[in-house]
């Protein structure tokens, strides 16, 4: 081994040791801060979502989630402004016949995964963001396997931009329901959204709706960034 490889190995071991010490300190220090303890004890009662992470993201801290969604919207707007006017090349033919056939049989099951993740966001780990990104990856997969001509005709950039804008508006509309009902912006149960019985699919008030909206928004935003990347001429770095 060269000295450089030795140096890399020593640095790796040292960094791993440091990380282990810090992480074990963070894990074994079991006492929760007051806010976290409140979330753990009262989270299910306040939000009716048995996935407390979803409850925090879409009920207690829904306004921060709106900020994150705005960041994605700004990123998509900036990228599509950079690539405006360029068209997607239609010269790609996709993968071979064997891959195309097998993916076309499996595509239905591929769609099922993000739909499950989004629909069960308030019950199991996951939610709108994770499901939305896997939807975007699915659109990338369809474009890679079947070629950009077929892919971008089935799910076009225009559709994605509409979906992005409409879902952003829908997020704010759901938040405005809270104001109308007298519970404050993005209020959930206090705005009269039905709590249902925690643990069932239709429960937790507005959280499943917000998950759906965020899923559509993230999927369309990231997929349109991908379309922007594959459009236009090849450039030199």
């Amino acid at each position: 081994m060269t000295t450089r490889a030795y140096a890399v190995a020593i640095a790796a071991v040292a960094a791993a040791g440091l990380g282990y010490v810090l992480l074990s300190y963070a894990v074994t220090d079991g006492a929760l801060l007051p806010v976290a303890a409140r979330y753990v004890t009262d989270g299910v009662r306040d939000t009716a979502s048995i996935n407390i992470v979803s409850g925090v993201l879409l009920d207690y801290r829904a306004f921060d989630t709106l900020g994150e969604a705005t960041v994605i919207l700004a990123a998509v707007a900036a990228v599509s402004a950079l690539f405006s006017g360029s068209t997607i090349g239609t010269d790609s033919h996709g993968a071979g016949l064997l891959v195309q056939r097998s993916v076309s049989y499996l595509a239905g099951f591929f769609w099922l995964f993000p739909v499950y993740i989004i629909a069960n966001g308030h019950l199991s780990p996951g939610g709108g963001f994770q499901g939305g990104v896997s939807l975007a990856v699915l659109i990338v997969l369809l474009n890679v396997v079947f070629g950009t001509r077929v892919g971008s005709q089935r799910i076009g950039v225009k559709h994605l931009h509409w979906a992005e804008s409409l879902s952003a508006a829908a997020f704010i509309a759901i938040g405005a329901v809270g104001i109308v009902q007298g519970g404050g912006f993005l209020a959930n149960l206090s705005a009269g959204f039905p709590a249902g019985s925690p643990g069932s699919l239709i429960s937790a008030g507005a959280i499943p709706l917000l998950n759906l909206v965020i899923g559509v928004k993230v999927a369309s935003g990231l997929a349109s960034i991908f379309y922007d990347l594959i459009s236009g001429d090849r450039v030199a770095p």
Binding site: V8, A11, A12, V13, A15, A16, G17, G19, Y20, L23
Partner: peptide, 10 residues
């Protein structure tokens, strides 16, 4: 866990 952390850095 430590092996995973080493792998992470590597």
């Amino acid at each position: 866990f430590v092996l995973l952390l080493v792998l992470l850095v590597v």
